[in-house]
Design a protein around this nucleic acid. Structure first.
Lengths: 243, 243
DNA sequence: GCAATCTATTGACATGTGTCAAAGATTTTT
DNA sequence: AAAAATCTTTGACACATGTCAATAGATTGC
């Protein structure tokens, strides 16, 4: 088996990228957009199971996911792992590395993936030139802070079934924004990874899936999930707002 | 009782602020530092129990805490609250507001406090002019992301006593960086607020305090805490690394 | 100074989730 | 195609933390 080089020097243009609306949803003139193409240095392919970056790696670049699915996770000194997020096409990872110039979490590809490598120096240089880009970078970081706030709410206050309902609703909503179904999805992560993200054991995740399935709210077959009663899920997540 | 105006127009200079090392730890020439003074528009006093900003408020400014102690919290639709952080002098709050131009959490003063108001437009303008400031703003946001990652680890993987140990160690470490004792502190928050932050009920917080006290690791009297055996706390937080 | 109100502690008991174990599914390897 | 490995489901039971309640201590207001 021929080992593949990890980084490929394919020069790609944001200006012609079909993910631009997710990744760079800014109103630029096509002139400016040309200049912006230089944020992305290269593309990089990551095979399923490989790390895009690891805890301790020195930080140089942010990564825009072009396709594929990632998890990010932190580990305690005794080996316990916490999944801190799942990321899909159009989302940016690597922000954890900015503060100390090295990464403090692992980013693992849950399927074969491709990312745009954006050297952070380029991002900062262009941000000074384009206030719209500057604002966008700030929003991306702020969005991540707000997302983590709501995960803290899940972990601190919600029960197992509420967590899983919130998780499923969030996933389909993001997939729908990418043109996928609102009601069907194929999970890219195991029960254990879902459990790690949601602060529960894999058996509890499995039981919650089965419970939803018994109640006719979803159909589950291994990693395939069909949402039959989205309103019921919303009601579980948030008993008050939905009748 | 004469109602106080909330915002006072005291012009203050970062260049002569004794918290600069915490708030703006950047090597600037005194010339540049003068220009930087314009990030801060005004100071604002907040009385204990009042909100610096609330969920839904429109976002205009970041706030640097000059003195006093804050909590930030998010609420679910059914009223459940999750404390997402405790902030002290030299720390920046308001980052949650950037993404959507309105705040998504409440910032409550746990004691009478004073903050420097930094209109975000000023921050962005000056960031384009001063790469060092730009980098600093990025680091502040990244630091918050990394902090929240480690809270997720606490909430998702740690048991009650581990959470409280981590909480106390983190608090004294930050207080120590501000010139306070490494071993003594007066909590500014109730057991319930600690519990909300750590994802446990106030009774569980109280029991964990009592347990540590019984074991001679800390001395507790209401909100006064003295850490007698810091190593024992570290060992509870992380059984593996400390022998 | 005393009532009223918070806040913290502690006990007894309940319960949601974890733990351990076994058996099916599914995928990968050989 | 069989074997091995991995992932998922399900059951029985354990236990950490939640819930409810009573008491004590601190703080605030009159």
């Amino acid at each position: 088996m021929k080992p593949e080089t990890i980084t490929e020097t394919i020069k790609v243009a944001c200006s012609s990228c079909n993910l631009r609306e997710l990744c760079m949803p800014i109103g630029f003139t096509s002139d400016d957009m040309q200049k912006l193409d230089s944020v992305v240095a290269t593309r990089r392919r990551i095979k399923q199971g490989d790390n895009l970056f690891s805890n301790g790696d020195s930080f140089t670049s942010l990564f825009a996911i072009r396709n594929g699915f990632f998890k990010t996770c932190v580990s305690a000194a005794d080996g316990r792992e916490q999944v801190t997020g799942f990321q899909m096409a159009g989302e940016i990872i690597g922000l954890d590395g900015i503060v100390s110039d090295y990464h403090s979490c692992n980013a693992v590809a849950l399927e074969d993936a491709e990312v745009c490598v954006m050297p952070f120096a380029n991002v900062e240089d262009l941000s000074r030139e384009f206030p719209q880009l500057q604002r966008h970078v700030h929003k991306i970081m702020s969005r991540e802070i707000v997302r983590e706030n709501s995960v803290m709410m899940l972990l601190g206050n919600m029960r197992a079934e509420e967590r899983l309902a919130a998780f499923l609703l969030n996933l389909v909503q993001r997939l729908h924004a990418r043109g996928f179904s609102q009601s069907e999805l194929t999970l890219r992560m195991s029960r254990e990874e879902i459990g790690s993200y949601l602060g529960m054991k894999l058996e509890t995740v499995s039981r919650a899936f089965s419970k939803f399935s018994d109640e006719g709210i979803i159909e589950v077959k291994q990693r395939y999930v069909r949402i039959i009663e989205p309103d019921a899920l919303k009601k579980i997540f948030n008993p008050e707002t939905c009748t």
